[in-house]
Structure formats: C-alpha cells, structure tokens
Design a protein around this nucleic acid. Structure first.
Length: 287
DNA sequence: TTCCTGTATC
DNA sequence: GATACAGGAA
C-alpha cells in the first residue's frame, strides 16, 4: 500500500507530471561519466561526492578517485591517510574517513561487494537514505524513494507552488507514486536534470524545503581551522603539537584574525583524533 | 558576500 | 529539531 496522495493530487496528475518530466529530461540530459556505469562501488563514490560538492567539481575528481581506488577492496587496502589525501580539495574530509570505514566493512563482511537494498546500505557509515536510494536506483534499477535537492526542487515546484516550508514527509508519497517500476535510473536522471535546470532558471524551489538551511560563515570558522589542520598534518606528518598550534596561530594572524586559544586548539584536535584523522604519538601528530 | 548539500550527532 | 561539516564559484 502506498500512502494517499496529498492535497487533491490524482494519479492522473502524477502520470502527466511523469510524462512531462521525462520529455524535458530527455532534452536536458547530462551525459555524466558516473551515469555510464552500473558498478555500485563507482556509483556510491559519485553519490558521496555529490552529497556535498557541485557537479562541475565532481567531474574533475571522480574518475581520478576511481582510477586510484578502483574497487571496494582497493579502497579498503588503502590507508585512511591516502584516502583523505585523495579527498583533499573536495571538502568535508570526515566523509573520506566514512568511505574508507564502509569499504572495510564491505571487504570483510560482504566479500568486497556493497550490500543490496536501501536498509542494508543505510547501516554503512556515511550512507543515509538519500545515498542508499541513489545507489539502489542507479546501480540496480530498483524502484525506491530518492529524495535529494534536485528531486525536491522539481516536486516542490510542481506540487507546492505556494508553500513556504515543504517537508520530506510531504514529498515522500509523491516521490513514491511517481517512481516507475522500470527504468528507475532513467526516471531519476530526468528528475535530476530538470531540477538542476529549474534551479538555474529561477529562484531555487529547494529554498522552500524544510530541509533547506543556510550555512554559517566559513572565514574564521572552526571548519576552516579543521580543514587547515588536516592539510598541514598531511603535509608534515609527525609535526609536534606545539609547532602545529604555533603554525595555526601564524596562519590566523596572517589572515588578520586573532590567535587560536589553546582551549579551542585542544578541542579541535580532540575532535579530529576521535574521528580518526590523527593521533598524537611520541613522534608528533600522525595520520 | 552568497550560494550550494546529506549524514551524523546531540 | 538543530548544528557541524569544506571549499570553490558566481
């Protein structure tokens, strides 16, 4: 049983919507490299990259990543440091660690394959509902509810033209009803391409999603310091704790900001240690 | 300066 | 339900 459709939407409305999106999607089709594979691993990597990073930049990084780590087993065999190194410049380094951890699980538990099904995929670190559905739709062509920003844009634009805050719970029955039994992959490509087009040509409908949030400023933020520290330790493995703090201070001063209080520095390093980026050894900070 | 996005964790 | 997370482009 599927949930009842909201606010007077009929199944005829859905059918017409699907036809329209399919037509428009065909015109707007983007021949992205990760659309030319069905390898769940390669698609997983693309989905994780696209969680956080815009298509234009992922285009410059995905093939390189796949070339360096072509399989789950290759990623698992690599060190976390190598994976984070390859990830540098993508942002959200934490996700590189989650990828590596998930690859370890797939290598040891699933013989180097990804588990099948949204629920099983969701158990892996760094994979939530959206990524699990994306992997399932694009690698296996199995119907599922894939709700991410472009999909939200299309459904909000179409079915909630005047709403201020549309929740995923409201979208879910519509996304489910629209998903076809066959050619799931083609359907979601069309949605993504139409959604991306929509965002280019008018005020982003996703801003009316309840999930939409503005990000806090990056300059001078803890995020910026974390990223700087990750780069610095990768470049100078074994760097002494005091030296690292001193260099961070110097960097902040250079940027016209205050020195970093030792308390804040400790707190950031504690986080990075906990998350598995580095540990402090006798020989200094190391990956 | 503003824009962009899903997951984890509280 | 709120917040942290990273970086480049416009």
């Amino acid at each position: 049983m599927t949930a009842a459709l909201p606010n007077g939407v009929s199944s005829d409305d859905i059918d017409a919507f699907v036809r329209r999106v399919r037509e428009q999607g065909a015109e707007l089709y983007r021949d992205l490299p990760w659309r030319n594979t069905r390898d769940p691993y390669a698609i997983w990597i693309s989905e994780v990259m696209l969680q956080q990073t815009q298509v234009a930049r992922v285009l410059t990084r995905w093939e390189r990543f796949i070339a360096r780590f072509p399989t789950v087993d290759a990623l698992s065999a690599a060190s976390s440091a190598d994976v984070v190194e390859e990830w540098q410049g993508m942002g959200y380094n934490r996700r590189a660690l989650a990828l590596k951890r998930a690859a370890d699980i797939c290598a040891s538990e699933f013989g180097g394959a990804l588990p099948v099904g949204v629920d099983e995929l969701c158990k892996l670190p760094g994979i939530g509902e959206a990524t699990a559905a994306g992997i399932t739709a694009f690698s296996r062509d199995v119907p599922c509810i894939y709700i991410e920003t472009n999909v939200r844009a299309v459904f909000i634009h179409e079915f909630f033209p005047d709403a201020e805050r549309v929740t995923d719970k409201q979208l879910r029955p519509l996304v489910e009803a629209a998903c076809p039994a066959e050619d799931v992959r083609g359907w979601y490509y069309a949605l993504l391409d139409v959604g991306a087009h929509l965002k280019k040509t008018q005020v982003n409908p996703t801003r009316r999603s309840a999930s939409y949030t503005r990000q806090s400023a990056f300059e001078g933020s803890r995020r910026q310091k974390r990223a700087w520290i990750v780069r610095e330790v990768m470049a100078c493995p074994g760097i002494a704790d005091e030296e690292l703090h001193a260099r961070l201070d110097a960097e902040e001063l250079r940027a016209g900001r205050d020195r970093v209080p030792v308390q804040e520095y400790r707190s950031i390093m504690a986080d990075l240690s906990c998350e598995g980026f580095f540990s402090l050894t006798e020989g200094g900070w190391k990956a």
